[in-house]
């Protein structure tokens, strides 16, 4: 079985001034169906790593194979295409389109795959049921609670049928009980084979993962390699 992610000597240096070496020579692989937590102190490079894995930025060095294809040196349009079809994001700040309804926000996940209206609708209804928001499907996102927002974001990520779901502090803006609900959902989906990477400060979030990577000062430490 191929790795979903295979990263070799990955480097990220932000051209300053001041110049910041946010990642140095990172190497690791992630298999299909893994649940990986990335932890580390503030400013250590966790978000940077996530943005490279999600092709939001291009690395300044090294190689990145996603589903076996080298994506480290793609141009802007090619990266957009890979994002559209292979990556699901869950952000700390949710990033919902506030003036649109729940169902519309979930459908945005398919907009740039060129999926037609009808299929978008049926698939989004299914995902909304899966995250338990069918009673709020036509509510405006501006009226949702934090936990509900993050469940909408999760549905939007999953409707794309991504190879990889990337979460940056997914519970950072949630209280503990709503956090549990979101983490339960994520764990359940991982149980069905979804590959998940979570960046977090929070030990309770990290504890859900099957494998831990630790970053300190841009360098990957081994951490506790596995709970499995």
């Amino acid at each position: 079985m191929t790795n979903v992610v295979d990263v070799q000597k990955l480097e990220m240096t932000y051209a300053g001034p001041p110049e910041v070496r946010a990642l140095r020579s990172c190497e690791f692989t992630i298999d299909q169906g893994e649940y990986v937590a990335i932890t580390g102190p503030s400013g250590s490079g966790k978000t940077t790593l996530l943005s490279l894995l999600g092709l939001l930025e291009s690395p300044t060095g090294g190689r990145y194979y996603l589903d076996g294809a080298n994506v480290a040196s793609l141009n802007d349009n090619e990266r957009a295409a890979v994002r559209a079809h292979k990556i699901g994001f869950v952000f700390q700040a949710f990033h919902l389109v506030e003036y649109r309804s729940v169902i519309e926000n979930v459908q945005v996940g398919l907009l740039y795959q060129g999926v037609g209206r009808l299929e978008r609708r049926t698939r989004s209804i299914r995902l909304i049921e899966q995250v338990g928001l069918e009673h709020r499907a036509s509510a405006l996102c501006a009226t949702l609670s934090g936990g509900e927002r993050q469940r909408v974001a999760l549905a939007r990520a999953l409707i794309r049928r991504p190879s990889l779901v990337l979460c940056d502090e997914p519970t950072g803006n949630l209280d503990s009980s709503t956090s549990e609900r979101v983490l339960d959902l994520l764990g359940g989906l991982n149980g069905q084979g979804l590959t998940v990477v979570v960046v977090t400060h929070d030990d309770r979030v990290a504890a859900r993962a099957s494998r831990h990577l630790t970053i300190i000062d841009g360098q990957l430490g081994q951490g506790s390699s596995s709970d499995v």
């Binding site: 996603l66 080298n70 994506v71 349009n77 957009a80 559209a84 079809h85 003036y99 907009l111």
Partner: peptide, 27 residues
């Protein structure tokens, strides 16, 4: 070293117009 053979990003014209309309008309 295989390149990505992924599908391109695609936005249907009707959707583009609908998105723009909804962005304008909510205010």
């Amino acid at each position: 070293m295989s390149r990505v053979d992924s599908l391109p990003s695609r936005l249907l014209w009707g959707d583009a117009v609908a998105e723009a309309l909804s962005a304008v008309m909510h205010r």
